[in-house]
């Protein structure tokens, strides 16, 4: 194929080959937020549809680009070529063909799409196979998530980390306390916006236990990047155990450090914004801290939850997460010793 030796053709082919090899690399199931290895029913429907559309698009892509490259290579002008080609103005039959054929392709995509839209629109009810869905009330805040479980009692409230049992449909009621956020756990399926003055719904039935990542995907201000979600899909018994613990009030601190920390907590600015059930702290601006010690991360997934990071956070939340709504009056926070005691107390809130 002497013609393909020509520079442009080769380079384009090379680029295509590179792109193709890239394609084989992106689909990595070990990535925490991959969208193409769903582990829920809802994610599965989407994935089926995505595969269909992806392959159709790939066929169109290869067909159109291939023919295009062929036309360029085949009909390119060589040096000294003075020929004027036949002056073809058009062809009605071809025009009809390339109106109808893409329409068919699009129809093949649109019909299952609309089917899936309606399939996913029926809010699951008690009669569904897996029993009644577990309702989780989600409220987006700048920049953290709040979760409540009406079924487990008015008290059960947590932040940024949400637990649900495997195999049971979870129904999320999405609200916002301030601006628009969007709730997304890629491996569980599509996202849905949390819009102030509205309530949106989203649901899925997780098929595997594990820890799944998600995050806010509607730009919501300076810390939009650090408004993450951790989803824990537990076995039913583990979920029950977790739920029972969450329903309890905060453990009274044991150990001198934690006790001192609790006292500092109560007399500092903290109670103005945070609730710790079983204590006088009733603030609602910030996350509920009743069981904060049991979380894997703090500050909406920014930092692993450990002693050092709690000290860092409590001493200087603006330094860790600039713009965060956790601000001390007159920007005066706890002293280093106070921060260490607070961290000990917070850790004890398992």
């Amino acid at each position: 194929m002497a013609t393909l030796r020509q520079k442009p053709g080769t380079i384009v082919l090379l680029a295509l080959a590179l792109a193709a090899s890239g394609c084989t690399q992106w689909a990595d199931p070990s990535l925490p937020e991959t969208t193409v290895f769903p582990v829920s029913d809802s994610g599965g429907y989407i994935q089926d549809l995505y595969s269909l559309i992806f392959w159709m698009a790939l066929v169109v892509f290869i067909g159109v680009e291939g023919f295009f490259l062929y036309a360029i290579v085949r009909y390119r002008r060589r040096a000294g070529d003075n020929r004027i080609p036949a002056q073809v103005h058009g062809n009605l039959r071809l025009e009809i063909a390339w109106t109808v054929l893409p329409s068919i392709v699009l129809l093949v995509i649109t019909v299952p799409t609309i089917k899936t839209i309606f399939l996913q629109d029926t809010v699951p009810t008690a009669s569904a196979a897996g029993g009644s869905p577990l309702t989780v009330e989600v409220t987006g805040h700048q920049w953290f998530w709040e979760f409540r479980y009406p079924e487990l009692g008015a008290k059960v409230m947590t932040a940024n980390e949400v637990h649900i049992p495997v195999g049971r449909t979870a129904l999320f009621e999405l609200r916002s306390a301030d601006v628009i956020h969007s709730f997304w756990i890629p491996k569980m399926g599509g996202k849905m916006d949390a819009v102030p003055t509205r309530v949106n719904f989203m649901w899925f039935t997780p098929q595997e236990t594990g820890e799944f990542y998600g995050q806010c995907v509607e730009f919501c201000g300076i810390q939009h990047a650090d408004m993450r979600i951790r989803l824990f899909v537990d076995s039913p018994s583990a979920f029950q155990a977790w739920a029972t613990r969450q329903a309890e009030d905060a453990a009274s601190p044991t150990g001198a450090q934690a006790r001192d920390g609790a006292a500092i907590f109560q007399r500092s600015a903290c109670p103005a914004c945070h609730t710790i059930r079983g204590t006088a702290a009733r603030g609602t601006t910030g996350p509920d801290l009743t069981h904060v010690g049991g979380r894997a991360t703090i500050a909406a997934g920014m930092l692993p939850n450990n002693y050092e990071n709690l000290i860092r956070w409590v001493s200087d939340p603006q330094g860790v997460k600039i713009g965060s709504k956790m601000r001390y009056p007159n920007d005066v926070g706890p002293s280093p010793t106070e921060a260490a005691l607070l961290a000990a107390y917070l850790q004890s809130l398992q």
Partner: peptide
């Protein structure tokens, strides 16, 4: 449905 995985 696909767009809910791709949007934003």
């Amino acid at each position: 449905p696909v767009d809910t995985q791709h949007q934003d």
